[in-house]
């Protein structure tokens, strides 16, 4: 497989990397679902969830720092939840007056904001570990095993296969644009033309990229046809999961369900 700067897969020799993709996919989804179902403010459960995901990160020898750095990606979305302390009613924490407007922050709202942010952070870490420790073709086999339709999995595979080719194509287009654009010295010079003009030219380049994609798709189809493609996508059946992998799956699911039940019992 083509190695590319966009590919998040990090080759390592670790237990997590060696684990079956089906196992990892199922456990990641179960972890995210558990995190989502855990009630707001169930702090001890949150600590357990964090401990769980940190343990997997250490086991995967990806480095906690790598995962934490990438997990900042989801941070800007917390903006959407920021008004929560002021809109949820409950025990008053403090109030701010802005002109004639008084904003009252509530403990319940703050709890919910922190909970939403933490849940989002845990979930994104799980997804990062999955993507960084599993090669995409294995992930595709995992999706197939979990019942994603064959045609959709084939689409994922094709898109992934040609993603890097087309990204390289896009980079060539950008390099050509840069080579033909004049820039004055100094860093903060204005880009040429109006915004509307620039947007439309970018559109033209996107159109060019699409045209190349159309032409490439024709060639790919003909090549596939020449090798006997008949519209059906066939894959080798995956071998059954080993006993130890099934044991890990069972234990993982069991501990997640246990955490969830505890959370619902005491904080639900």
């Amino acid at each position: 497989m083509h190695l590319h700067f966009l590919d998040p897969y990090q080759p390592r020799l670790s237990l997590v990397h060696a684990a079956d993709a089906r196992l990892k996919l199922a456990l990641t989804l179960a972890f995210i679902l558990t995190t989502s179902l855990t009630p707001f403010g169930a702090w001890p459960i949150y600590i357990f969830l964090l401990a769980l995901i940190l343990a997997v990160e250490i086991l995967s020898s990806l480095g906690v720092g790598y995962v934490l750095k990438r997990s900042l990606l989801a941070l800007p979305f917390v903006l959407a939840a920021l008004p929560l302390p002021f809109t949820v009613e409950g025990h008053e924490l403090f109030s701010v007056s802005l002109g004639g407007w008084t904003l009252t922050a509530s403990a319940e709202g703050l709890t919910r904001l922190v909970s939403v942010a933490l849940k989002s952070w845990f979930s994104v870490q799980a997804a990062i570990v999955l993507a960084a420790s599993t090669q995409f073709p294995d992930l595709l086999a995992g999706m197939r095993a979990l019942g994603v339709p064959r045609l959709l999995v084939a689409m994922f595979g094709l898109t992934w296969r040609y993603l890097f080719v087309l990204v390289d194509e896009a980079l060539r287009l950008m390099r050509a644009r840069a080579a033909r654009s004049g820039t004055a010295a100094g860093r903060n010079t204005r880009s040429g033309g109006s915004v509307v003009w620039r947007a439309r030219l970018t559109g033209g380049m996107v159109g060019n990229l699409f045209l190349r994609a159309f032409e490439r798709a024709d060639r790919i189809y003909v090549a596939m046809l020449s090798r006997g493609y008949d519209g059906e996508v066939r894959t080798l059946p995956s071998p059954p999961m080993s006993k130890s992998q099934r044991l890990v799956l069972g234990m993982g699911l069991f501990s997640l369900v246990l955490l969830l039940l505890l959370g619902l019992l005491f904080w639900g």
């Binding site: 045609l151 094709l158 990204v167 699409f210």
Partner: peptide, 13 residues
């Protein structure tokens, strides 16, 4: 099928 796959990649790129 290949057309859709390549176009999805093109949207990405």
């Amino acid at each position: 099928v290949p057309l859709m796959g390549v176009l999805a990649a093109a949207i990405f790129a």
